[in-house]
Simulated assay, not measured.
Amino acid sequence: MKINSWLTDDEIAKSKTITRNNSNRTRRHHYVPQMYLRRWTTESTKTVRFTEISTHVSELKDPDSIAYEENFYQIAADDIDLDAHPDLWFETHMSRIENAAARWLRSLDGLPDGRLTDPNLRANLAVFVALQGLRTPRQRASQLDIGDRIEQYGARTILDNPIALALVCAANGIQYDPSSHNQILETMLASEPISQEAKPVAIDSAIGIWRRAIAPHLTERSWWLVSSTEPLLTCDEPVVLVGKPGQSREYVRRYYTTPLILFPVGPHRLLVLTDSNQPLTRPFSLDATETSAVNLEIAANCFEFVYERADTNIAANISVPDRPETNPTAETFWQEVNTPTRWLGSLSAPEWPLQRWTQEHQR
């Protein structure tokens, strides 16, 4: 499979060069791109409504002033060579991708509902959607927690298991061969991290997973455009993994095994990614009940905030449980790093949405 240029060493080197030659030090790092949130603004108002889902406190603000943390993507530590690795190169690289992604998303506006057939557009969107799924505060917290748990349990203890090592290989785009288990294990254990500090390691790990695993995986999925007459939300975790009837809702699903991946691209448009051999059936539009279920799923998936048009207030009527920090019953490394959802332990978890596309007869 051809590697998308945005994932290559050449483009990353270009971003590093741009960063070295740029005297501007951007401190406000948006984990939800401004250009993406502006798709929920109107000509009459340049603001979006953002709501803290736990309190329902809501405000109208410009996308520039929300969904950011200062220096969130700065990769800096005393043991990092800042000439070889300029501290803001990843922020630069994401900004370059976002500039291109604004065009990619606009191109969707002129396309009809149904299957997305342009392979170049799919490959580019895979880069953007995968990046958005891995750049968020929840994902950063998850990477930091994994680092802590590795320190607790020991890397060799965790990885010296065929199932565990195969999972880690898949996450890093490495082909696992049981006959080479020991060789792969020793190679992994001998690899030096970018730093001894936790934040650079967490960012570097997310970059690797994005480049070598998730973006290539999304490229291989089938992509579909779906519309809705009722307005859609988005959130600070807008890549939403959806299961099928009978699958647990208590833990965040995995990219490789989830039947559907949802990504809102506007207040009335949704990207739906399916398994490569799973077509969607008509109609490629959501009725009011389906839109409501998708909005609930988006709200439940958020880390803290949901976003919508200024002239709507959908989030005011959505209630979801608080997000659990940890799994209180975890006893092993893999249980501890299995991210719980808001439905952990809930007796009132809703059914998965869009079951007309995930029922067994559709697979």
Rank of each mutant, 00 (worst) to 15 (best):
E151Y: 07
N313Q: 10
I298A: 00
H181G: 01
V48P: 04
T274L: 01
T358D: 06
S58K: 03
S228I: 02
R253F: 05
L232Y: 06
I298K: 01
S227A: 15
A206T: 08
D236A: 01
R122A: 10
T329F: 06
R363T: 03
V129R: 04
L105T: 03
R363H: 13
A100F: 07
A126L: 04
P264T: 07
T312F: 08
N182A: 08
V239I: 08
N313D: 15
P267T: 10
K14V: 10
E237S: 11
N99Y: 02
Y31V: 01
N71R: 13
F303G: 12
L116N: 00
P279S: 07
A102R: 11
W223S: 00
C235F: 01
A100E: 13
A288L: 01
H56M: 03
R39E: 09
N120F: 05
V32A: 05
L88K: 14
N277Y: 08
L167E: 14
N99M: 09
D322Q: 11
L131H: 06
Q359T: 12
N22A: 08
S195P: 07
P231K: 04
E325D: 13
I158S: 07
L165K: 05
I184V: 13
L189M: 04
S191T: 15
Q335R: 12
S205Q: 12
T55Q: 03
L241D: 03
T339M: 14
V240Y: 00
E331G: 06
G154E: 03
R156E: 14
R115C: 07
N24I: 13
T358L: 05
H268K: 10
K61D: 13
R103K: 12
A213E: 07
W210P: 03
A123E: 11
I209W: 00
C169T: 09
I75E: 07
V272G: 00
N327K: 03
A171Y: 05
T326Q: 13
